[in-house]
């Protein structure tokens, strides 16, 4: 039995294999193909025949790739992609596309698993720093009359709140996620993007924090050295 969605997905894979890797052209070509198919369907063709005709009319993948390579990508597009790749979204068009079919979304459990893997190291580092490093840092700073810098102070306050309201916070987060999974229609579309940005932000903040801690430790240590 011919399935249009599968056929379109396979066609997209072919373009990808031919070397059209940038999301924008892929998105655009798919949008075009679907319009073409719709046009053929409207003129009375069967789904399979409409699809085949539309593919032929759109042109062979390799030829398209050659032309697209000649056209090149704009700098803005490259930067946009680079940024999204850093936030853990390899294809932002896929992550935010409006006309995606369900099968093109990453499965929910995969997003959850990936997010956990990405944020656990950052959480461990943070907790480790709060328990092991910061008390020492406080001592160092007290001994050398150096005030703790504000990022560390803020982080400590946040950590305290986190400890205080850990159970409540977890429950609220779970409830919100549960509600989104249950009721929201747009959530599957943006789940991965949201998770990606949260994980990126958290990792970023923790890294900055650790860097600040190191710098302060060195500065405070220098104060403690005997002056000649």
């Amino acid at each position: 039995m011919f399935n249009l969605e599968t056929a379109v997905a396979e066609w997209r894979q072919e373009l990808l294999a031919a070397g059209i890797k940038a999301p924008e052209p892929l998105e655009e070509l798919e949008s075009h193909l679907r319009e073409e198919i719709e046009g053929q369907l409207a003129s009375g063709l069967e789904a399979e025949a409409a699809f085949k005709l539309a593919v032929r009319q759109t042109g062979p993948a390799t030829a398209l790739e050659t032309e697209f390579t000649k056209a090149g990508e704009t700098l803005a597009e490259k930067l946009k992609q680079l940024f999204h790749r850093f936030t853990g979204v390899p294809n932002y068009q896929l992550a935010t596309a409006m006309n995606m079919t369900a099968q093109n979304h990453e499965p929910g459990w995969a997003s959850y698993l990936k997010t956990l893997t990405l944020i656990l190291p950052a959480l461990f580092l943070w907790v480790g720093a709060c328990v092991l490093v910061v008390p020492k840092l406080k001592e160092l700073c007290a001994a050398s009359n150096l005030a703790l810098p504000w990022p560390v102070v803020t982080a400590l306050i946040v950590s305290e709140c986190f400890k205080e309201y850990f159970i409540l916070g977890s429950l609220v987060t779970l409830a919100v996620l549960g509600l989104l999974e249950w009721r929201s229609r747009w959530w599957p579309r943006y789940r991965r993007l949201v998770f990606g940005i949260v994980a990126y932000g958290l990792n970023f903040v923790v890294l900055i924090l650790l860097a600040v801690v190191c710098v302060v430790a060195v500065a405070a240590g220098a104060h403690l050295l005997p002056h000649h």
């Binding site: 075009h32 073409e36 032309e67």
Partner: peptide, 15 residues
């Protein structure tokens, strides 16, 4: 036109 060929042209013009 071979339809797909228009898009590289459009991209080049945008570029």
């Amino acid at each position: 036109w071979t339809d797909g060929m228009l898009y590289p042209v459009l991209h080049r013009m945008e570029h």
